[in-house]
């Protein structure tokens, strides 16, 4: 019997080693797998490369992981927000490396990794500082930049419901990077509000098929978080 359900967040992240590349889902705090991040902080893995759209909000979740000095490098599109003071402090002191990627290129690089694409040409960023030094190509009257996939050792994502095969459904705009990160990582760990019986998820509505998910942890609904009003794209 296939059973991807693990008992606790601590067990789920127990083998994330020092130096791992870890994708973390979420757009700001929507879809951020906070309990898995807390478990990673407790585990204490160091020198991590983190892939996320942002670079943490306030003092919890991803910001707390940065504050614990476990992150060597972050790959993201929008680090600067009204409440990104943890990242801001580390960056200004030179204590964290930043790879800034346009948001659509970030998404497509993650998607490409999951889809087995070796590289792709994209029009986004052409002629800007974020494409400096990259290969370009003129195709059918338009200029493109060559971008490479972003692979990861682990992905930590959050979904609404999951089953023991790893099938997932999400909730509203908390879906964001979850489905593409699930496909891009060698080991995807999903925290879900509720684990349901196999067959309870309508196959027509499964968003992430279980083949992309290796571990599922149930974390019941937390206290309602208020969206963080950061000036962010």
């Amino acid at each position: 019997m296939i059973n991807k359900v693990v008992a606790t967040a601590a067990v789920a992240v127990a083998d994330i080693p020092n130096g791992a590349t870890v994708m973390i889902g979420g757009f700001g705090t929507a879809g951020m797998p906070s309990e898995l991040i807390d478990a990673l902080i407790a585990k204490g893995s160091k020198d991590l490369t983190i892939v996320n759209n942002n670079a943490g909000n306030a003092d919890t979740g991803l910001a707390a992981l940065l504050k614990a000095r476990q992150v060597k490098k972050i790959i993201c599109s929008f680090p600067r927000q009204t409440d990104s003071w943890v990242f801001d402090g580390l960056y200004k002191k030179g204590d964290i490396e930043l790879e800034l990627v346009p948001q659509g290129n970030l998404a497509e690089r993650i998607r490409a990794a999951g889809a087995g694409i070796g590289a792709f040409y994209t029009p986004t960023g052409y002629g800007t500082p974020l494409a400096e030094g990259k290969e370009t190509r003129h195709i059918d009257g338009r200029d493109y930049v060559l971008e490479y996939p972003i692979h990861a050792d682990f992905a930590l994502i959050k979904a609404l419901r999951g089953d023991r095969w790893g099938n997932l459904v999400y909730r509203k705009t908390a879906r964001n990077f979850g489905p593409i990160m699930a496909a891009a990582a060698k080991c995807t760990i999903a925290q879900v509000r509720e684990i349901v019986n196999l067959g309870d998820l309508d196959p027509e509505n499964v968003v992430t098929p279980g083949i992309f998910v290796q571990r599922v942890v149930e974390v019941p609904a937390e206290a309602k978080l208020i969206a963080s009003p950061g000036a962010a794209a």
Binding site: R80, L100, V101, P102, Q103, G104, L130, A232
Partner: peptide
């Protein structure tokens, strides 16, 4: 300045 681009280029 801390650079942040988000979805602007796309």
């Amino acid at each position: 300045a801390i650079p942040a681009v988000g979805g602007a280029m796309d």
